[in-house]
Nucleic acid binder design. Structure first.
Lengths: 143, 143
DNA sequence: ACTTGACTCTATAGTAACTTCAGGGTGTTA
DNA sequence: TAACACCCTGAAGTTACTATAGAGTCAAGT
């Protein structure tokens, strides 16, 4: 099948597919006489795997690691479990960060309920006097 | 004061400060005879404001908007409230996404509790057969 | 045969908010 | 005068794509 068809099956754009090929996540397929990429069932499965990982917010690095582990069945899936546990940890961390953020934002928002001059706006005041915290080093890639 | 001192006060790097200047978030300061940037109290406050906004995960666009509104006190702070409400909305949205993500990841993780060959690994199987969903368009910049 | 339209190709640049690097100048201390 | 910490500029790298330009391919319609 051609790249457009594959894109439709995998719910992504053709540009994304070409990008994955350049990134070596997806192996380069055969070409037709007209130099069109020609995909088979193996490509469909591999791309679906990648897209599913991305839907779970894994990085290309994590996906590459999983794909590598997949090729060595004898190594067992301990490493896979580990990778997934780590990733769940990232998600947990980010959720905690965002909850704290929301609390700060909500507190800030409380400081101005009225339509006054911005000179007296409690929000602007809060943003100016707040103790700036050094951004904690991210252990996660989740924004 | 010189850039290094300012960076320490504001808990950021000197590169970040120079970047903000290039982005016009922070006004260009005076220079010493040796062409070193020379900052005053106004810069400290402005930079703290920016860093506090960033600590709350606002984009440069949102910060620029706030800084603009700050200069027009007579416009009142309705727009500021609105901007903050929107931002809180973004955070809420992202939290909801991540909670759903975590559920999916946890379910996936359940599929392999043992140390078996990866051929039989339920996680890899799950990632291959999962229904790929088209990524919903983001309304938020929070990753 | 010719044209239109939908598809494909490559290569390059843009996105956000920085970080890193290369190559050089300044200022204080020993 | 040499070492060392600090400052300067400009360009490139980061992530996972998205967008654009310019050109080739193919099937259907006139």
């Amino acid at each position: 099948m051609k790249i457009g068809e594959l894109a439709q099956i995998a719910q992504c754009t053709v540009e994304t597919i070409r990008y994955y090929e350049k990134e070596a996540l997806l192996p380069a397929p055969q070409r037709t006489a007209a130099n069109y990429r020609s995909y088979g069932q193996a490509h469909v499965e591999r791309l679906r795997f990648i897209r599913n990982c991305r839907a779970l917010d894994m990085t290309h690095g994590e996906i590459r690691a999983l794909l590598g582990l997949m090729e060595k069945p004898q190594d067992g899936c301990g490493a896979i479990n580990h990778l997934l546990d780590d990733h769940i940890g990232h998600v947990d961390e980010r959720i905690a960060e965002l909850l704290q953020l929301k609390q700060q934002l909500t507190a800030l928002r409380q400081q101005c309920q009225t339509e006054q001059s911005t000179d007296a706006c409690g929000i602007l005041h809060g943003l100016t006097v707040m103790e700036t915290e050094a951004k904690p080093k991210r252990h996660t890639h989740l924004g």
